[in-house]
Computed example of a mutant assay.
Amino acid sequence: MAFTLYTDAKMTTEASSPYQLDFNGVGVSDFKLFFGSPYVYETLKPKSDQQIMLIPASRLKKWQAGGTYGFGNIVEPTVANGCMYQCLGSGQAGSNEPAWSTDYGSECTSGGLVFVNLGAKFQPTDIRLALKQSDLGSAVSGEALAIGTELKGGTAIPVYIRVTNSNNAVRTDRTDPCISIRLNATTTETVVQTG
């Protein structure tokens, strides 16, 4: 399926998915991507919803006993406490869950692995989506963006995105992106032309 987010209106370069967040404190990042397919013979339709929708979603994984982690992987406790934690090594977690501290920069261990508190976890509500840049200010945080009942390939739809860091801490998920924009359940129809 070629319907996805692109960095250009000609749909030649797919956008980095998921988008990585990197803030040096409170801030806002606005940017524009393009949704569509470069293939004119494709048509996208929703499976059960009335509209095709782009939906802000969490990708943050829960810590797992005995789980294998690589340097930079980001997790949250099995019982969420509002924070995200980055693994500072590589290997297997122990059978006991770390004693997660909610203090920014604090470290905790599981097996031979060390996890550092990166601060408040990124939330889907940190994202606003709109079809016009002027609508970003009034867009509802975390709300899905309806983009049509049917989309034909060959036409790119501009999607304006605002990501806000509402926390004063320096926060980044550059090593393991924690939120993304997903597509609701859709189906792609392909019209094959015979000559």
Rank of each mutant, 00 (worst) to 15 (best):
T149E: 15
T155W: 09
Y19S: 08
N24M: 03
A156W: 00
P56V: 13
Q133L: 11
V163Q: 10
T7E: 07
D30E: 09
F71R: 13
I157N: 09
L136E: 03
F35S: 07
T187V: 07
A80C: 12
S48F: 12
T175A: 15
A144Y: 08
A80D: 15
T186W: 00
N168Q: 14
I147E: 04
I161W: 02
G70L: 13
T12W: 00
T188Q: 06
L145R: 04
K10G: 03
E76V: 05
Q86K: 15
I55A: 01
Q51M: 12
A93T: 04
D8F: 02
D8V: 03
E97G: 03
R59W: 09
T194C: 00
N165S: 14
K121T: 01
A15L: 07
P77R: 12
T109H: 05
F115Q: 01
G153Y: 13
S16P: 11
L151A: 03
Q64P: 13
P177G: 03
P46C: 12
G70D: 13
M11Y: 11
K45T: 15
I181M: 04
G148R: 06
T102P: 11
S138W: 08
T187Y: 01
F35T: 11
K45N: 14
K32L: 12
P158K: 13
S106G: 11
D173K: 12
S180A: 04
T43I: 15
K62C: 13
R171Y: 05
S110E: 01
W100V: 05
E189R: 07
T172I: 02
L118D: 00
G67S: 09
F34G: 10
